[in-house]
Nucleic acid binder design. Structure first.
Lengths: 223, 223
DNA sequence: GACTCTATCAACACCGTGTCGAGTAAGTCA
DNA sequence: TGACTTACTCGACACGGTGTTGATAGAGTC
């Protein structure tokens, strides 16, 4: 597919990724209303108990009109999750700088803390995104891509720490990174949703970082 | 609800937990046929793409007749998962004996190997059980109970190893156990389903055990 | 040969999704 | 001004899935 060539900017319909085929008028309000309704309802009940009609009603439109703005309920959720992921993405680079400034413990803590903070405020959205992976390939792909990004970052950090002699050799850095990132995903999700068993919200970071440091440095108290 | 009082044992219809309200006759075959159909289809496609009609057709009965044997599609899956969990449950106690006989590395490896082996043969069932947690409270409860069992076992082992001086003190044993068990759940699931990123099937145990040993003993090569 | 209990299914009621086609209202420009 | 376009709206429908009802057939007592 060719990249859209620059069009006359004045009347260009602006096609937003997963949203509606381009428009410009007051329909923007409706689109926002749908997204806001979805975010609100997702904090009240799981995705499977929210119908397209609920979203339409909440946005003050009829069900067919909903389909003018989004191709499906899934697309709404993916749009919301996309944004949440984008918000949290900024914190990834913060790991690197925090590592350089504060050493390993502080670095990892800052990184994981920021990440966790981004999701903590909207557990319903996190749950919806997770649930969606059961039925939606696009949701699986999106999440796989997010995980791949974190794994790549962590792999790089581990390799750097080994190169400068701060961490001993061991399992391949990428393998270690995969296991640790997956542990975090699962543990933080369980804590966020209040599963049992799960780590207490105010202990989860302490415990996870302890495992990270021991796995990477061989001690809970490196340099 | 009062517990059913002991009935005359001769003609008691035998109510099986999640299956049909009691009977005895040749309908047993049908019940088995439904379960077998479900197991077969689950290795072909995800639960969300299997309808009650598919299960009924596969068992050679009509859709309403299906409901004579099971109250819902979910109940069929829960029955299958129940059994798989029961099969895998035997391996739990093997951790303890293997630990006593072969020391920490061998003990954990045998334990996790057996566990993994039980699930490896039926990834479709594992996926169905996981997917089901998105919509089904009973599935969440069942899984929570399974996790709780493993966490309890691992907690006991960690405490025993600390008591005999083989493992140093650190994070509360239960917290450590939760994080490690969750890591295993997530990592083994990802490997089983071939997600990306995920650990290679022939490396997953090496990597996970390495993290376990470092987290528990502070070294990848304890006594 | 009346009675019971298992087993079966056609027909139905219901709900959620997604589409179609007929609009209306606001803007553009001849 | 009035023909034309574009954004937007929704009633009505078709479809596919779930779960229930009620009628019935056969096998097993007694």
């Amino acid at each position: 597919m060719p990249v859209a060539k620059a069009e006359s900017s004045s009347t260009t319909p602006t096609p937003r990724g997963r949203g509606r085929r381009g428009t410009r008028a007051s329909g923007d309000d409706r689109e926002r209303a749908i997204l806001e309704t979805a975010e609100r309802l997702l904090e009240e009940r799981p995705l499977s108990e929210i119908s397209v009609d609920d979203l339409a009603k909440g946005a003050g439109i009829s069900r067919p009109t909903f389909y003018f703005y989004f191709p499906s309920k899934d697309a709404v959720v993916l749009t919301i999750v996309d944004r949440l992921v984008a918000e949290s993405g900024g914190s990834r680079e913060e790991i690197i700088t925090a590592l350089a400034e504060g050493g390993p413990q502080a670095g990892f803590r800052v990184g994981l803390e920021n990440l966790y903070a981004a999701f903590r405020a909207r557990p319903g959205v996190v749950r919806a995104g997770t649930d969606l992976r059961a039925t939606n390939q696009e949701a699986r792909d999106l999440w796989a891509q997010v995980m791949e990004g974190w794994v790549a970052d962590v792999t790089a950090v581990i390799e750097a720490e080994r190169a400068r002699g701060a961490a001993p050799p061991g399992q391949p850095a990428r393998d270690l990174a995969i296991a640790l990132v997956q542990m975090n995903e699962r543990a933080q999700y369980a804590t966020l949703l209040g599963e049992s068993p799960s780590l207490e919200a105010d202990r989860v970071l302490d415990v996870l970082i302890d495992v990270w440091l021991r796995a990477i440095y061989g001690t809970a108290d490196p340099g």
